[in-house]
Design a protein around this nucleic acid. Structure first.
Lengths: 168, 168
DNA sequence: AAGTTATGAATGAATG
DNA sequence: CATTCATTCATAACTT
């Protein structure tokens, strides 16, 4: 990792902690939380509070985007489409099973979980057994936060004429 | 389920339609436009909404990139302005409007072009009422989220506007 | 088969 | 919170 500090490049550990926090239900951390998170994550590398702020903003927004864009590809013309693709060139359809499985991102139904956790899950420390870190986490973040999160979203797939969008 | 490849590889027909849409002036389709485009293009092959989204993002960005480099070479007068943008690390929004418009290779009116594109073989002529559009719009945001948060520890500080503290 | 290019995908950083 | 822009990473496709 070069010292090209044009923009923040989170380390794997930082991403892991942030992701854990997000998965735990944290969405819009307060200034106070942001500073604490940033302070702790600075152990793993350079980081500023605004990075944490932006990270949550982006992650939340993109989860919503993904949700909104989640689609379909499950329509009646699907079979016909496949036939069509095979008739044409489509050497591009070299799909490997592992690739398919790798596309399974977060199970969306897992968002319905009700979870109790600490602000900093202990498994974030799995690779770092330094007593100092442990003390940090256990002391500074003793406040137990219980998130009960139920997300229900509706997806829809209307087949609309594109022109409607153009004229509006 | 449809086969999902490691990475979307658009068919020639898909690229043609996307390019035509781009050339007709479409730059940043809205979410519902993306949905419709993706839905239509699924006739030609596997495709997801995010593919359409990324395609337009990339195509626009790379056209701009190309043009910016060109301007940088061909028109030394603009060097100062571009240099200014890069020095201040600000987006091109901050620059003069004529500069932004000069980024577009396509004539300006192309952005507002209203055109009936007979690009799709099927279902292209289905009409939808305004009420259906409205229903779709409202459903799109019918994201029922129940979020119950219990914080064991008490907040010490009032919640401040993060942006104010970060960017001052 | 290695190296290069084109481009899909991702994400940090904004702006309003 | 939405949307957008910029850079960058990753890799399919192409070139040699």
């Amino acid at each position: 990792m070069g010292t090209i500090c044009g923009r923040w490049n989170p380390t794997a550990e930082q991403v892991k902690v942030l992701t854990d926090l997000f998965r735990s239900g944290l969405r819009t951390p307060t200034t106070d939380q942001i500073q604490k998170i940033s302070s702790q994550l600075s152990f793993y590398g350079n980081i500023e509070s605004k990075n944490v702020f932006y990270w949550f903003q982006n992650h939340k927004a993109r989860e919503r985007q993904k949700h909104r864009r989640k689609v379909l590809v499950d329509d009646p013309i699907n079979d016909e489409r496949i036939q069509f693709c095979q008739d044409k060139n489509i050497s591009s359809n070299k799909c490997s099973p592992e690739m398919i499985s790798s596309y399974n991102e977060e199970p969306d139904q897992a968002e319905r979980v009700i979870e109790t956790l600490q602000l900093f899950p202990l498994n974030s420390l799995s690779e770092y057994s330094e007593s100092e870190k442990l003390r940090f986490f256990t002391e500074e973040y003793r406040e137990n936060i219980t998130f009960s999160c139920t997300i229900g979203a509706q997806m829809d797939h209307p087949t609309l004429d594109l022109r409607l969008s153009f004229f509006s």
